[in-house]
Write a protein that binds this DNA or RNA. Sequence first.
RNA 1: GCCCCUGUAGCUCAGCGGAUAGAGCAGCUGCCUUCUAAGCAGUAGGUCGUAGGUUCGAGUCCUACCGGGGGCGCCA
Length: 535
Amino acid sequence: MSVAGELRVLLEQAVLEIGAVEARFEIEEPANPAHGDLASNVALTLSKALGRPPRQIAETLAAGMLRANPALVTGVEVAGPGFLNFRISPGAYQVELQTLLQEGERFFRPQLGNGERVQVEFVSANPTGPLHIGNGWLGTYGDALARLLSFAGYQVVREYYVNDTGGQIRTLGASILAASKGEALPEEGYKGDYVFTLAAGYSGPDDVVAAGRWAVPIILDEIRESLESLGIGFDSWFSQASIEDSGAVAEVVHRLEESGAVYEQDGALWFEATRFKDSRDRVLRKSNGDYTYLAGDIAYHYNKLAIRGFDLVVDVFGADHHGQVSSIKAAMEALGIDPARLDIRIGQMVSLMTDGEAVKFSKRAGTAVPLTWLVDELGADATRLLILSSSIDRAAQVDLARAKATSMDNPVYYMQYAHARIAALFRNASERGVSISGLEGADLSVLVEARELELLKQVLRLGQVVEMAVLERAPHKVTAWLMDVSAAFHRFYHDLSVLGAEANVRDARLALVRGTQIALQTAFSVLGVTPLEEM
RNA sequence: GCCCCUGUAGCUCAGCGGAUAGAGCAGCUGCCUUCUAAGCAGUAGGUCGUAGGUUCGAGUCCUACCGGGGGCGCCA
């Protein structure tokens, strides 16, 4: 059990002893070291129920806590409005390090998934042109999220929904045909250079659908390649055409009809989505007999949740697809599927600055900055860490010139440098004939320096950070931890010699460094970043 | 007009309802005969958009307003 977990048990007992039945409280690591190793607000939350001032409750609790477990708690003080600040015995942290060294990466694994089957759908960009930076942004997010879920014990399937049918494919075909005949491209057509490249290779019939369908696999190959260059891979590429051809759309519409949530008007078939908290009703089948995109999307989600039966489906959409959310959720509810099983994450748009001027993404105008450009400039790992340092809720602003110019000063290298220094330490240890096997047996009780304990506590936090990152679907929290732990490591490395220390201290420090290495590698791994052995 | 996201240091961004709001970059000052100075230490820089409210306690929650982004098709 973690140090905070043990403390919680003690506190709960202490609370019972003073006659409070149920207490909800937090145990946290104070930002200010003067406030101890761990702190709790328990007295503040109990104040109202007990009708006593918080500081008085805190005093009573503190007295009990000191006697409870001297091996864990070495000091308690009441501070501020009634906080309990605890001094924790270094031994408690040393024991945890021992466990970490024995268990390895598993030490940090949150038991959340329990083998539940989760599908993460992301990117799913229309196969009508090369990916742009926005796709890479949410693609990296989705990929990291999939890795996190998998690490946390979920059985994860990553899927790309291929929109290989409908109007955009016709538009693509029309653009290719026009280009191949040397005609002006359609007003609403695709206009990038790739259209002309495709046109030069097209020798099929003079038919927009044929030309569009011909181009899809070619473009998909390119998409797959640029995703792979960023370390993003999929288990499944699910074709929209396949679901239409299978009759699944008609079937799911029929199910909605049976549920009574459907009506006809103006020759079209409508889904009464307002009954399920959507802002307006939605057309399922147009008056010309074609199904709408929404009908297909409902069938697709029905396929995921009911046919394939994933326990949980996570969709990663861009903000421009936000409008779909309430409709799909409404449809799932109408079909008797618990909407909580569908977790839709909306990533805000990424805007791009060049020379201080905003560049607008538009695939159709052919002005989009290709994803491959960014990856070529920065490299996959730096690109991923750049993306994974901020929340997707915020519309990120990337200055292309700056991202490139500061690449050598990038925070990325701060984290990588910590890992590289550790690798160098172990290389040097071997060269000097210092054994680095059996570190888990080292006597860790000599780890008492402030720098050592600071680093150790930071390392041990990873499990809780990963858990929060999974629950909040927020991989960037892991990146923030990487910055923190790297800082703690650099300070430790700067102030204390590892290989130059007395043998027993040296071995204990090597054990700490090994623990740090495992933690760093675990974090890099869930982010899909390759740690550097040297720089 | 309605819905979603957002406003924190010069810039890019962190910040589970807690104590003195942080990091990187940019600025200034120190530190390499010592395991990698892509590092460390110090310094400077803030009305957390504005105004109310809830709370023992609000950057964090609620309401209104202001600014920025996105969405409101028988397109996909």
